[in-house]
Design a protein around this nucleic acid. Structure first.
Lengths: 380, 380
DNA sequence: CTGAAAGCGCTTACAG
DNA sequence: CTGAAAGCGCTTACAG
């Protein structure tokens, strides 16, 4: 039995850059025994930061200056084809990787973008993150994820933290801090709002038309013959919540149906708040026959409450949600909802942000993506 | 009507550090009109990176050297109380923030920890992330989130990317790359495995006892009188999946029930795979009367399949899941499952990692946290 | 197209 | 307890 393999060893002195040895070994093991399994175990030493290869080493071996190596690495055109090839050859041989800490420091950039969002556990944001991430990675940027747990204080703190880190830009998927502060932030550092937006200031934004979407949802319920429609809103300090209430009101007004205050109840986007509010609705004299919830999570809470009270959905009561999270098709009956192009929103927001970072002119500062009513089984 | 407010302006020349002016203004506006709303709009200029305050500026104003300022900032004890106070005073006045890019470069650290996970959309990992994050932030570390989308290639790529960035450590919540590579990685850079583990190498790990947990789940079904129990496994290249099968086998063997190959079907942790496999089970002659799914997602898929086929759960068939994600209580009937201390696992993993980074000795290299069988409504 | 040299803003070993 | 000075590993304006 014979086993052969090759390995490469690199030796480098701490100070003397003229001493880089690249040694390739061929190792052959012969034995008379049969070997069924071979565990080859190299005890690789901790990568010693003090003897890592530097640009200087590459430069010496390639007989050029570090300036040239740097130019090759940054795809600067001012390098002759021949020189570039030579340098690249050495870089490959040594498996040299430039020190990002140094270059970022030098260039005053971190090649990192922060995404600040209210709740990472919410699958709605998971999709947004994926969009952001794919677009960022494609352009060599990393993502710093900041989950504010719905707290304005956390939101402010993160914007500070993140500035100290020299992140190159921020995507705000939550915007609960005062409008003025968000505006100021956007003057200091590239900022794009995703999902949310800020009134009266021109901050780059990607979102859907929440008013129209909510109006359509409500109109659909009206079309089904419902007259007593309750709305479970998101927290009213966030603007998309208010927009959805606005759309709800518009729909009713257009049909000359009076808006009843009792039918407008404020939740907080959580399952529990949907459940609690639904219970309240069900306990009242004038029960609504249909519910429009401002998030799928709340709709699911409401659905649960109905079931617990022995009501059949949609026969006794119709429910419509908002967001179209994957869960919608897992519950019974499947949830009718308004779908937002989540992944696309993430992509677009990141594209916009990278454009701002690159100081390109934006053709459009406000992008409104299309939503869609998805009729499933909780409405009739 | 009269409005008064104060604001502070800081002026600094690019080169001449002796020229820092801090000016406080008091501004008063008087008017005879009634003012209901006042929008005060300062056009704050983009924070110019080239004139940002530096340590040198602080040092000059405090009449000390930058070395001393640096010592104050890093809580080095070799500074007299008086000097420290003086420096701190100036730092506060100027609202000076040290340049993290510079100090990280100098110290060869990034104060960042990477968390590599298979799927950010899975609420199971969201909880783990929260644990990691809280623990990291508490210690001044940032989190770089890397979602591999269940791809081994992505996993490898991220470990490379992340090394280039000088992250101080890595938490692997997925471990599908070859054992040897993971081991090598752990020799180069601090690594802690969360959820998964690697056989035969001593890599710091936080997990539950998957074998025992799976055995208990199966035993519970056996206790309910089930004899034909199917298992929907996770991908068998991941070790926790194999462990759960092992526990399942143990339970059957202990009761002298023969293990049938057909009853062991491999899924991929997704809802869809649970659905598909359940359909396959239901189409067979010898239907199982109970299902143990290796993840809640797959259990939910299976539940859905049963409903679609008109079967009642748990009367016709029992289902038990794994993980205890929030969704469990949202579906009907609520899902019986094995609960993992997700948040705690994240915390512990991060604590361990930070200990390794600080070069503290670990009392324990393998932490096994307790799991718990949670009986709800899908089993009887 | 290329190189010598300055400099980014800190930290730290050394000397006092 | 404090400071002068070197140096971390790059990039870039400048000169040729």
């Amino acid at each position: 039995m014979k086993i052969a393999f090759r390995y490469r060893v690199m030796l480098k002195n701490k100070k003397n850059v003229d001493n880089i040895f690249v040694i390739d070994y061929n190792l052959t093991i012969k034995t008379n025994h049969k070997i069924n399994m071979v565990a080859i175990h190299f005890n690789i030493k901790k990568q010693r930061k003090d003897i890592m290869l530097k640009m200087e080493d590459v430069a010496k071996l390639a007989n050029v200056s570090t300036a040239t190596v740097s130019r090759v690495l940054s795809n600067n055109k001012n390098v002759s084809h021949k020189t570039r090839e030579k340098v690249l050859e050495i870089i490959n041989q040594l498996e040299y990787k430039p020190n990002k800490l140094a270059s970022n420091f030098r260039k005053k950039t971190s090649e990192t973008v922060a995404v600040i969002l209210p709740d990472i556990e919410n699958p709605f944001f998971a999709e947004i993150i994926k969009g952001c991430r794919d677009e960022a990675l494609k352009n060599g940027f990393h993502l710093l994820l900041c989950d504010t747990s719905n707290s304005v204080e956390q939101e402010k703190e993160f914007t500070e933290l993140v500035k100290e880190r020299f992140v190159d830009g921020i995507i705000l998927a939550t915007a609960r801090m005062p409008k003025g502060e968000i505006y100021n932030l956007s003057q200091e550092i590239p900022v794009v709002l995703a999902c949310e937006y800020v009134e009266s200031y021109e901050i780059p934004t990607v979102s859907i038309d929440n008013v129209t979407a909510a109006r359509e949802a409500t109109e659909y319920l009206l079309d089904q013959g419902h007259k007593r429609i309750g709305i479970i809103t998101g927290p009213l300090e966030v603007i998309v919540s208010r927009d959805r209430v606005k759309g709800y009101r518009q729909a009713l007004l257009l049909r000359d149906i009076p808006v009843q205050d009792f039918f407008i109840q404020e939740g907080d986007f959580s399952v529990k708040s949907g459940y609690d509010i639904m219970m309240k609705f069900l306990a009242s004299e004038q029960k609504p026959t249909a519910i429009f919830a401002s998030s799928d999570a709340m709709a699911l809470g409401a659905l649960k409450a109905c079931k617990n009270k022995g009501l059949r959905v949609p026969d006794d009561i119709s429910i419509i949600g908002f967001d179209d999270i994957p869960l919608c098709t897992l519950v019974e009956p499947e949830l009718t909802t308004i779908s937002q192009p989540k992944y696309e929103m993430g992509c677009q927001a990141m594209k916009m942000l990278l454009n701002i970072i690159d100081k390109n002119d934006l053709q459009q500062k406000q992008i409104v993506l299309p939503h869609k009513l998805i009729i499933r089984q909780t409405t009739n």
